[in-house]
């Protein structure tokens, strides 16, 4: 079965308590690994505020994952996410060669910088 490199970002409803959020994130981790995918990296950004109100909520628990998965797994996973009402939004991207090259640079930390952080931003960051 052909495998592709995917990036998945989804938002879990932040109104739930801590265990339920962890449980639903874990549910999808297991769903992907059982489906024959290898998860390369999972990066949980935690609860972030939205820039606009999304069906009554102002913040959500963001999860960002990179994995290689067989081709037919994505449709099943997305169907699960549509049914599951704990998941507010999700976005799955298939990585083509250009994005893969970008991903390698990102891993090595040599991404081209478009804007050097200005003094006031640098002050905030440092």
């Amino acid at each position: 079965m052909k495998k592709n490199y995917y990036e998945l970002t989804f938002i879990v409803n932040a109104v739930l308590d801590e265990e339920q959020i962890k449980a639903s994130v874990q549910k999808y981790k297991d769903f992907i690994t059982n489906g024959g995918a290898e998860i390369e990296e999972i990066d949980e950004w935690g609860i972030q505020r939205f820039t606009y109100e999304m069906d009554g909520k102002n913040s959500g628990y963001y999860v960002n994952a990179f994995f290689t998965a067989p081709v037919d797994l994505i449709a099943k996973m997305e169907r699960q996410m549509l049914i599951d009402d704990n998941i507010l939004r999700f976005l799955t991207l298939k990585y083509d060669n250009k994005m893969l090259h970008h991903r390698d640079l990102q891993k090595k930390g040599k991404l081209p910088v478009v804007f050097e952080p200005r003094e006031k931003e640098a002050a905030e960051e440092s």
Partner: peptide, 21 residues
């Protein structure tokens, strides 16, 4: 063009700071 000057390959939707510019 800022991107070709920096030699960007793919503009990622996650770095919101650059996109906001």
């Amino acid at each position: 063009c800022k991107f070709s000057k920096a030699g960007v390959i793919y503009i990622d939707y996650k770095d919101v700071k650059t996109l906001q510019r």
